[in-house]
């Protein structure tokens, strides 16, 4: 379970929202919406450990990542699956290499099994040897999702993963994310500026604005 208590988001030492508190149980995907520039990406990056928290507490499955604004677990030890705003696939690697790069340290057999499992789930089996520039927008997003989950994370964070693709495909990709979160039984956050779209994907939707976070 992801627990956030009195988290203050800061950019350039300026507070951008009122303190935020919310919980996301394991297996639940919460969609986070809100106006541009309100701090949705900052919230995701703060949970991932890529942005310093102003104050407050973040913990996952009882392990405290941040306490009273002080980082207790550095980002590389948080086991976070993160898909940033752009697909950010390594342009010089094939789809398979993009995935296997995140499985370093595991033996080849386990790597192959993990990769096969995610590419089947995301229906990109025929694209494993393609380079990112040979993929369509939707395919690239699916590879980015595959890359976020291939390392068996304990929390999944998706930042505007559905932007830039048409609504039908966005709903389809959103539902894949929902299924992944449910099957892996881990908490997940999907950020999207499109509130209507998020409502079609998950019943758990929150809106972030300068006054804080509200469940809708």
């Amino acid at each position: 379970m992801l627990e956030i208590r009195d988290l203050e988001l800061e950019v350039n030492k300026k507070r951008i929202t009122k303190p935020i508190s919310f919980d996301i149980p394991c297996g639940e995907l919460t969609c986070l919406s809100g106006p541009s520039g309100v701090g949705k990406t900052t919230l995701i990056r703060t949970i991932a450990g890529l942005h310093k928290a102003g104050s407050g507490t973040i913990s996952v499955n009882g392990v405290c990542f941040v306490k009273d604004g002080k980082e207790l677990v550095p980002c590389h030890l948080r086991k976070v699956g993160y898909a940033p705003q752009e697909p950010s696939l390594y342009p010089h690697m094939t789809v398979k290499e993009n995935l296997s790069f995140f499985l370093r340290g595991l033996n080849l057999e386990t790597q192959t099994k993990r990769i096969e499992s995610v590419i089947e789930q995301l229906q990109i089996t025929d694209k494993v040897d393609c380079y990112p520039h040979q993929l369509s927008g939707g395919q690239a997003q699916r590879v980015a999702i595959a890359r976020a989950i291939v390392n068996d994370p304990q929390i999944l964070l998706f930042d505007e993963t559905l932007s830039g693709i048409h609504t039908e495909l966005a709903i389809k990709v959103g539902q894949i994310i929902l299924k992944m979160v449910s099957e892996k039984n881990i908490p997940g956050i999907l950020v999207s500026h499109d509130l209507e779209l998020t409502k079609k994907i998950s019943p758990n939707t929150c809106v972030l604005n300068s006054q804080g976070l509200k469940r809708s």
């Binding site: 590389h76 940033p84 752009e86 390594y90 995140f102 370093r104």
Partner: peptide, 27 residues
Amino acid sequence: VPLYFEELAVLANIPRLTIFKKISIPL
């Protein structure tokens, strides 16, 4: 080159030297 490229590798706890060799040098 977006910072995401290296950030994602750092999040996955990939050693710094590997990030240099496989990501930073080519990109």
